[in-house]
C-alpha cells in the first residue's frame, strides 16, 4: 500500500512539474478599464471592525461596473495561510490584489511574488516590509497613536498615572500606534505609565486586564487605548469596581461613545477607519487602469473631542457599530445587534 501511495505521489509530482513547465506565464500586464477581477486577501474576520471593512469594500465594488468579479479570502490571522490565499488569488487571475496583512513581515515572499506578476498590489491596515508593492493606502498608524497620547495628556492636564491597552501583540498596526504614543508620553515627565498590556481587542480580556490593573494600582488617572474595543470594557470595569471614571482614548466604536456620553466622562475619539478598504480599492483601480499612484497614500479621518462625540454618538445603535463608517447602502451594512 505504501509503495503504491508513494508511486502515486511521485506520479503526481511529475505530472504537476511537466504541466508547470509548460504553463509559465509572463509578467507583462496591460492596463484594463473593464472586466476587472479583484482579489482581497483579508487578515481575519474576527470582530465587527473587520465586518465593516468588508462592508465598505463591497459597497465600493458595487459603485464600479468595470469590476466583473471579486474574490475574498480570510487568513484567520495566520501568515502562512495568507501566503497560500495570495497564491490562490493569483491562480484565479486577479487584475488587482488588495492585501490586509496578518503579519506583514511574514508574507513578504508571497507579496513579492504577486507584485512580480505585474498586477497592482495594494496594502492596507498594516505594513509589509518590501518595496515590491504598488502602494500602501490607509492611515498613518504611528501618528494615530501619537494623537491619542496628545489628547490624553491634554485631558489630564499633563500630569497623572496612566495605563496603556493595545490590540494584538506583534501586529505592525498595533506596534506603530503604541510607539507613536510612547514617543509623546516621553516628552511629558508628569505622565507616569503604570503598565502596558495587549488585549487582542477582546472585550472579555480587556475587562480581565483592567481588573488586574485596578487591583495593582490604587490610582489610575487615564487610559490610553488604541481602540474603543479596549477603552470601552476598561471604563465599564472601573465603573463596576466603583472607581472614579477617568479620561480615555479610542476609535469610533459606538459602545465607547455611548458610554462616554451616558456617564459624562471626557474622552477622545479618532477613527481608525474601515473606509480604508474603499480607499484601497479606489486607488487600486486607478493603477489597474494605467494611472501612476503614489507609493504611500495616507488619509486623515475626522477627529472627535468630547463635545463632538455628544453630537456624533448614536444611542439607538448597537455597541459594536462603527460610527461614521455606515454611510453606505443598507444592503451592505453588517447585521450587528
Amino acid at each position: 500500500m505504501k509503495k503504491r501511495v508513494l508511486s502515486l505521489i511521485i506520479l503526481m509530482v511529475l505530472s504537476v512539474s511537466v504541466a508547470f513547465a509548460a504553463g509559465q506565464q509572463g509578467a507583462e500586464v496591460q492596463p484594463k478599464t473593464e472586466d476587472i477581477v479583484v482579489g482581497f486577501s483579508c487578515a481575519g474576520m474576527g470582530n465587527s471592525w473587520r465586518m465593516f471593512l468588508k462592508a465598505n469594500f463591497d459597497a465600493t465594488v458595487a459603485e464600479h461596473p468595470e469590476i466583473s468579479k471579486v474574490y475574498f479570502t480570510n487568513a484567520d490571522e495566520k501568515p502562512e495561510k495568507q501566503a497560500a490565499d495570495i497564491s490562490d488569488l493569483l491562480t484565479k487571475g486577479v487584475d488587482l490584489l488588495i492585501i490586509q496583512p496578518s503579519i506583514g513581515a511574514a508574507i513578504v515572499p508571497a507579496v513579492e511574488e504577486a507584485y512580480a506578476t505585474g498586477i497592482p498590489v495594494i496594502i492596507l491596515d498594516g505594513t509589509v516590509p518590501t518595496d515590491n508593492i504598488t502602494a500602501y493606502v490607509g492611515q498613518d498608524m504611528k501618528k494615530l497613536g501619537a494623537h491619542y497620547a496628545e489628547a490624553l495628556v491634554d485631558m489630564m492636564g499633563e500630569t497623572g498615572k496612566i495605563v496603556m491597552m493595545s490590540g494584538i501583540a506583534g501586529q505592525m498596526s498595533v506596534e506603530l500606534r503604541l510607539e507613536g504614543a510612547q514617543e509623546v508620553f516621553a516628552k511629558y515627565p508628569g505622565i507616569e505609565i503604570l503598565d502596558t498590556q495587549y488585549t487582542g481587542w477582546s472585550i472579555p480580556k480587556g475587562k480581565e486586564i483592567m481588573q488586574s490593573f485596578l487591583q495593582a494600582y490604587p490610582q489610575i488617572d487615564g487610559i490610553w487605548a488604541d481602540s474603543g474595543l479596549m477603552s470601552f470594557p476598561a471604563l465599564e470595569t472601573m465603573k463596576e469596581a466603583g472607581r472614579p471614571l477617568v479620561p480615555s482614548t479610542g476609535d469610533h466604536l459606538n459602545g465607547y461613545a455611548k458610554f462616554l456620553v451616558a456617564n459624562n466622562v471626557p474622552g477622545y475619539i479618532e477613527p481608525y477607519s474601515t473606509l480604508q478598504a474603499a480607499w484601497a480599492l479606489e486607488e487600486g483601480l486607478k493603477a489597474v487602469k494605467g494611472e501612476t499612484i503614489p507609493k504611500t497614500i495616507y488619509k486623515d479621518p475626522e477627529t472627535y473631542d468630547f463635545e463632538r462625540i455628544k453630537e456624533f454618538v448614536d444611542m439607538g445603535k448597537s455597541d459594536w457599530w462603527w460610527l461614521g463608517d455606515d454611510q453606505i447602502p443598507a444592503e451592505f451594512l453588517p447585521k450587528i445587534d
Binding site: 501568515p79 502562512e80 503579519i103 513581515a105 511574514a106 515572499p109 501583540a169 506583534g170
Partner: peptide
C-alpha cells in the same frame, strides 16, 4: 514567510 514574529 521571509520573516517571523510572536504570532507567526
Amino acid at each position: 514567510m521571509g520573516g517571523g514574529g510572536p504570532t507567526t
